[in-house]
Amino acid sequence: MTSTKNSITGLVLEYDSGIIPPPYSHVFRLALDWSSGDLSTVLDLHYTEREELSEEEIFDEGFTPNDDYSHKGTLNSVWIKPLLQLYETTRWSSKEIEDGGITVTPLEKGKDEGVKIPSNQEEWQLMAQDLIQAIYETVKKEAPLKIDYRQVEGDQITDCSLTVHFSVREVIFEKKGASRVVNWEYAIQLIKIVFTPDYHYELAKEEAGTKRGAYINCGDGYWHELGKGVMNIDPSFDAVKKIRTGFADLIEGE
């Protein structure tokens, strides 16, 4: 019997955001094909139901009137292995998607093998988001995500940064001029937590603090102090503490 890894030569991911309101609501189709060895991609992303919104309302939410995007090209083949691993470990649901979600269509030698609905919706949606971000980086539409962090203990100041290169699926940690590659899953989970709490921009500074504490810059030029300018939203999930711990582990690790 031919294994899944050897038989599948591509995947088509189709997503509908469902009941999410505009300007956030969107659909996309991402076709991935590695039958020739390279990872070929075709992306069509369309934002929906914006007809009733003014341009000002769209801009206020951080979007533009022209956010639709189409692309055809190649990605680094480093993405093929994690795609196959996720496919092989996924359990498929017999339930129809009602309020938005993602579907997966496997391709074998270019042949459509039928639409599947993954039970692990969040994992597939995150994978698709990572792939789209990889496309944006590859075509220079967006720069790699860089998080700067400062830890101040007594008179010791430690500056470091975490840069996520989606284009090559690699995360670089830098401290005192030295850099190293860190575990992808660990780093992505930490980045996800970084964007979980509430950032109070009225308390933000253009320079990192020098008093005892921890300070973070999420790439927009503003520094926020954890515990003062960065506050937990959910009292049952201490994101601020997890950010401190995550970066402290990176700082202490070699």
Rank of each mutant, 00 (worst) to 15 (best):
residue 216 I to L: 06
residue 171 V to F: 05
residue 212 R to E: 15
residue 204 A to V: 01
residue 191 I to V: 13
residue 192 K to C: 02
residue 173 F to S: 01
residue 199 Y to S: 04
residue 218 C to Q: 12
residue 187 A to T: 01
residue 206 E to Q: 11
residue 176 K to P: 03
residue 174 E to W: 09
residue 210 T to W: 08
residue 200 H to D: 12
residue 197 P to H: 00
residue 208 A to G: 03
residue 186 Y to S: 09
residue 210 T to L: 14
residue 221 G to Y: 10
residue 178 A to W: 09
residue 198 D to C: 10
residue 206 E to H: 14
residue 220 D to E: 15
residue 209 G to Q: 01
residue 179 S to F: 11
residue 221 G to I: 13
residue 207 E to I: 14
residue 215 Y to W: 09
residue 220 D to H: 10
residue 215 Y to C: 04
residue 188 I to S: 01
residue 212 R to V: 11
residue 220 D to P: 06
residue 197 P to V: 00
residue 175 K to I: 14
residue 205 K to V: 04
residue 210 T to I: 15
residue 221 G to W: 14
residue 187 A to G: 03
residue 203 L to W: 04
residue 205 K to W: 05
residue 187 A to N: 04
residue 189 Q to C: 00
residue 200 H to T: 05
residue 207 E to H: 15
residue 176 K to D: 15
residue 210 T to G: 03
residue 188 I to K: 10
residue 191 I to G: 01
residue 217 N to K: 03
residue 173 F to D: 05
residue 203 L to P: 00
residue 221 G to C: 15
residue 169 R to I: 09
residue 171 V to P: 00
residue 198 D to M: 10
residue 212 R to A: 09
residue 184 W to F: 11
residue 177 G to K: 13
residue 187 A to C: 11
residue 208 A to I: 01
residue 199 Y to A: 03
residue 184 W to T: 02
residue 186 Y to G: 00
residue 220 D to Q: 13
residue 214 A to E: 11
residue 210 T to P: 02
residue 204 A to I: 05
residue 202 E to D: 14
residue 185 E to N: 09
residue 170 E to N: 09
residue 176 K to C: 08
residue 194 V to D: 01
residue 205 K to A: 06
residue 170 E to C: 11
residue 173 F to E: 07
residue 201 Y to A: 12
residue 201 Y to W: 06
residue 190 L to G: 03
residue 189 Q to F: 03
residue 194 V to A: 04
residue 195 F to R: 14
residue 189 Q to K: 13
residue 169 R to L: 13
residue 221 G to Q: 15
residue 218 C to L: 12
residue 183 N to A: 08
residue 203 L to R: 07
residue 189 Q to H: 10
residue 182 V to W: 05
residue 173 F to I: 08
residue 205 K to M: 09
residue 186 Y to W: 10
residue 194 V to T: 05
residue 218 C to H: 12
residue 194 V to Q: 00
residue 179 S to V: 06
residue 180 R to G: 10
residue 181 V to Q: 14
residue 217 N to A: 07
residue 186 Y to K: 12
residue 212 R to Q: 12
residue 178 A to Q: 12
residue 184 W to H: 05
residue 172 I to G: 02
residue 208 A to L: 04
residue 217 N to V: 03
residue 203 L to T: 00
residue 202 E to S: 13
residue 179 S to T: 13
residue 201 Y to T: 07
residue 189 Q to M: 07
residue 215 Y to Q: 02
residue 169 R to Y: 03
residue 196 T to Y: 10
residue 188 I to Y: 07
residue 183 N to K: 14
residue 176 K to G: 10
